[in-house]
Design a protein around this nucleic acid. Structure first.
Lengths: 125, 125
DNA sequence: TTCGTTGTTATACTTATCTTATCACAAATG
DNA sequence: CATTTGTGATAAGATAAGTATAACAACGAA
């Protein structure tokens, strides 16, 4: 999978990595059991430090997206806690929906936006 | 409007303020033309520094939620740029939907989540 | 005018986070 | 054996966040 870093972004490098990997999992570019590149490999690929990659992996582990195997490195392993996930998503969505509402985005348009992204992701479920 | 700060949160204080004010606008607790508390007042109310409040107001101004009047302070004034707003929302939603999808949240459940929040906000449009 | 309040700017300091760097170690692979 | 793995310790620099104090012009009210 192609991972690219925007050094001009105000988003932290390790968060850019985290988000891209999560989107990679969602779009099946990474599947349960797949190994991520080693921290040193990925660091070389995108041109950043090993520890920054390690930080991204550590976050992904804490959030239940990967598990770390001594010999296989970071392996995609989703730990599903639906209730907790929903609570987290709700908190983030509240701000996003409020922002949209202020800018005259209707409820219907928001639903359309969701669908557009799902289409973008290729008919994901 | 009641504004509260969680000092234990990992979210920056000025972003907590920004988000709460945006949600306040969305829920009509603040309406177009209303004045926000002065930076010094709000700083005293929530127990933080004046400049942290000022930073929140500056961000709200840059994002088109308030305008600043010399005599009236920060006044709610929404600058609607729908295309830009949609682009921004999309970028944030992509990560959120991916996160949900990984955790077995279906498209339908995501739509339900949206509706729940709208209900929470009191039948907002 | 005088007094108080407004947003704004400037400076300085502390603290925390982010990122890089270098070194090292045990465990596993070949 | 040599190499690569994740992980840890430690140090350093850079940036962001937050506080503190001071000052200014503009405005409202006394």
């Amino acid at each position: 999978m192609v991972i690219e870093i925007d050094f001009n972004s105000d988003e932290a490098l390790y968060l850019q990595l985290r988000n891209q990997i999560i989107m990679g999992i969602a779009t099946s570019q990474y599947q349960e059991g797949d190994s991520l590149p080693s921290v040193r490999q990925l660091a070389d690929m995108v041109g950043i430090n090993m520890h920054t990659v390690n930080k991204a992996y550590t976050v992904l582990k804490q959030e239940g997206f990967v598990k770390v195997d001594r010999r296989r490195g970071a392996v995609i392993a989703i730990d599903v806690d639906k209730l907790q996930t929903i609570a987290e998503l709700k908190k983030e969505l509240r701000v996003i929906l409020a922002k949209g509402s202020c800018k005259n985005i209707t409820r219907e348009e928001m639903h359309e936006l969701i669908d557009e992204i799902y289409e973008e992701y290729g008919g994901l479920e």
